[in-house]
Design a protein around this nucleic acid. Structure first.
Length: 445
RNA sequence: GGCCCUAUCGUCUAAUGGCUAGGACAUCGCCCUCUCACGGCGGUAAUCGGGGUUCGACUCCCCGUAGGGUCACCA
């Protein structure tokens, strides 16, 4: 039994794309599940488009997701090896140098290298799809290098995979049509054919291949928006694969345990932000309150302007509402802002629910509530507060008591329930706020 | 257009010849409830079409249809 070796070969010509992350993830899961090795190779042979910053982003992003590898290399470091094999093929008559007019600059003549195509049918087995057959004659003598020192992608990949001992090529479905040409190169080189698995593509809402035009396609955008790496991994793994049951909640290590290429889907899967949001919320809720706050701080350092104690008490409310950390951040200055900033209640809203004798009744309720809150022990939890207040509310009418109370505390038509608010704000601040509303009632007389 | 791949609720999917076709997200309704959110319960919703094979097809075969991918001196 030979060791499984997979590869993660991103080209650093753009940001860390979701598709790159998904392919990397499946290579990672398959290799780790089989106690194999993973080779990371930066496919940087396009000198004009490759950028170090992209490579850094991809590496950082992969690590952020928890994806690791055992070997690191850059394709550009292998040019002498490529040249040697190119020369070998030419000497053996399997490839030849061809003087042609440059396609990029028609005034120039260049010496490119073409593979002598035996022109036969190639059938390869795809783990996901079964046998796939191509007639390679239509490919002709295709170009494998711009020059002896400048191999093209197909040639470089085949050589590098061969040298790294790659046993399984797991990549996107868009690689299917590249496969016969790569096999032709392998055969010319006498390389062993690896196993292939072509993953279904991730599609956008319009069911086209996910591209820059499809919206946020960089994993880093999701990180910056406050998504958890665990959620991205969990969601990505289930796009085009599933272990066969109803379970949907998987950490990276759990995925390694159950992963298999056998149950990879064949059809493309479309990206669904709503589903991702719900997966993310599930993972956010698993965090401790402290971890939760750290994550909010990571996306917005100026959260420090909020009172730390109040912030900590607010986390449970955020957990039940926010699906991303940026949503949580928005809530702190939106629907939960009343916790941090004393409200400015309006007279008419305070009593708007009351029919007649409204003002007098509301005033009486609020005064009663103040004395009840005063009688509470310090740091009383919401359920104690509730049992203290509810009998009175039930007697006088819940809406007539609870609405002014909650509105006095929050100044908002929509807010968390009054008991929770009192718990978070504390006795003193709560009474203070109710008194403010009382004053508004009286002054409007 | 040539070649290749694919086809179960709106979306992600389960069911690999034998069930009222299951789950999740979304959606709708009810309950909880002063509001919001959470939560609980329930509903709507799918095997692309036509032929075979078979006692029996979501499942196997063929033909259509539709969608996608790929056709570089990019990777």
């Amino acid at each position: 039994m030979t060791t499984v070796i997979t590869r993660i070969p991103p080209s650093p010509t753009g940001r860390f794309h979701i598709g790159t992350a998904r392919t990397a993830l499946f290579n990672y899961l398959f290799a780790r599940h089989n106690n194999g090795r993973i080779v990371f190779r930066s496919e940087d042979t396009d000198k004009t488009r490759s950028k170090k910053e992209y490579e850094d982003e991809i590496i950082n992003g992969l690590h952020w997701l928890g994806i690791t590898w055992d070997e690191f290399s850059r394709q550009s470091e292998h040019t002498s090896r490529h040249r040697a094999l190119l020369e070998k093929l030419i000497n053996e008559g399997k490839a030849y140098i061809s003087k042609e007019q440059s396609k990029n600059d028609s005034s120039k003549t260049v010496e490119i290298v073409r593979l002598k195509n035996p022109g036969k049918e190639i059938t390869f087995n795809d783990i996901v799809r079964g046998d796939i057959t191509f007639d390679t004659t239509e490919l002709g003598d295709f170009v494998i290098a711009r020059s002896l020192d400048d191999a093209l992608y197909h040639f470089a990949v085949v050589v590098d995979d061969m040298d790294a001992g790659v046993t399984h090529v797991i990549r996107g479905e868009d690689g299917i049509s590249n496969t016969p040409r790569q096999i032709l190169i392998q055969e010319a080189l006498g390389a062993k054919r690896p196993a292939y698995a072509h993953l279904p593509l991730i599609l956008d809402e319009k069911r086209a291949k996910l591209s820059k035009r499809s919206g946020a396609t960089s994993v880093m955008d999701y990180r910056d928006e406050g998504f958890l790496p665990e959620a991205i991994v969990n969601y990505l793994a289930l796009l085009g694969w599933n272990p066969g049951g109803d379970r949907e909640d998987f950490s990276l290590t759990e995925l390694v345990d159950v992963f298999s290429l056998d149950n990879v889907q064949k059809g493309g899967a479309s990206w669904n932000r709503d589903k991702l949001l719900s997966v993310n919320q599930r993972w956010m809720r698993k965090l401790s309150d402290t971890e939760y706050l750290v994550n909010i701080k990571n996306i917005s350092p100026n959260i420090n302007s909020f009172d730390e104690t109040l912030l900590t008490k607010t986390v449970p409310l955020l957990k039940e509402r926010a699906r991303t950390f940026s949503e949580a951040l928005d809530m702190l200055s939106g629907e939960l802002a009343c916790i941090f900033t004393p409200p400015k209640p309006e007279h008419d809203i305070l009593i708007s629910k009351e029919p007649d004798n409204a003002r007098g009744a509301t005033q009486r309720h609020l005064e009663t509530l103040i004395s009840k809150i005063d009688s509470l022990p310090n740091e009383a939890p919401a359920d104690i507060i509730k049992t203290t207040i509810m009998p009175y509310a039930d007697k006088e009418g819940r809406g007539e008591v609870l609405w002014p109370l909650r509105y006095a505390l929050s100044g908002q038509k929509r807010s968390p329930d009054p008991f929770t608010l009192i718990e978070i704000l504390g006795k003193d601040e709560s009474v203070k706020r109710i008194n403010t509303s009382l004053a508004i009632l009286v002054n409007n007389e």
